[in-house]
Write a protein that binds this DNA or RNA. Structure first.
Lengths: 65, 65
DNA sequence: CATGGATGTAAAGTAAGCTTTACATCTCCA
DNA sequence: TGGAGATGTAAAGCTTACTTTACATCCATG
C-alpha cells in the first residue's frame, strides 16, 4: 500500500515528531508508515485521514486490488 | 469501532462464509469484525468498502474520535 | 567547529489481526 | 426425525502494528 502521508505532512511543514504527537503515535510509527514499512491500523488510518481533512481512500492506495 | 458490515451483508443475502471468500478471509474473521471483536486491518477494511461500493468512513465509525 | 533538530533504522517486547481446527447451537426443510 | 447450512466461539499459532531505547547521519545556524 502506498500513501500520501509524507507529501501531506511536508506540505504543512510538520515534523514526523509533531505529526506523531497529533495522531497519538510515536515518530517511528509515522516514519514507518511514510516509508511503507507497514500499514497503519484502521483506527490510525482514519485519524490520519481526519487530520488532513481527507478520506482514507484518498490517502492510502492499494497497489494490487 | 462500530461498523455496518452485518447490515450490508444481510441486505445482500450473503453468508459470512460467502463474504469471507469474496474478501479473501475466513468466515471467523468476518464474524469477529461484525461483532466488533477486533478491527480489520487497513487493507481488509478497504476491500470491504470496495466490495460494498462505499468508503471506509461510511462503513467504519470511530466511537471516540 | 559544535550543537540541535529532523530523519533513518534496529532490537526487544507487547498487543492485535488472522488462520486452522474443532465443537456447539439453532433453524429450516425433506 | 435428522441432516445441512448458518452462526458463535475457543485454542494455538503465526505475522504485523506499535512501543521504548538507542545510535547514526545530515543539515543548518550560532
Amino acid at each position: 500500500m502506498r500513501n500520501e502521508v509524507r507529501r501531506l505532512r511536508a506540505a504543512r511543514g510538520l515534523s514526523q515528531q509533531a505529526l506523531g504527537v497529533a495522531l497519538g503515535v510515536s515518530r517511528q510509527t509515522v516514519n514507518a508508515i511514510e516509508q511503507d514499512r507497514y500499514d497503519p491500523s484502521l483506527p490510525l488510518a482514519i485519524r490520519i485521514a481526519r487530520h488532513f481533512g481527507l478520506t482514507v481512500e484518498e490517502i492510502f492506495h492499494v497497489d494490487d486490488a
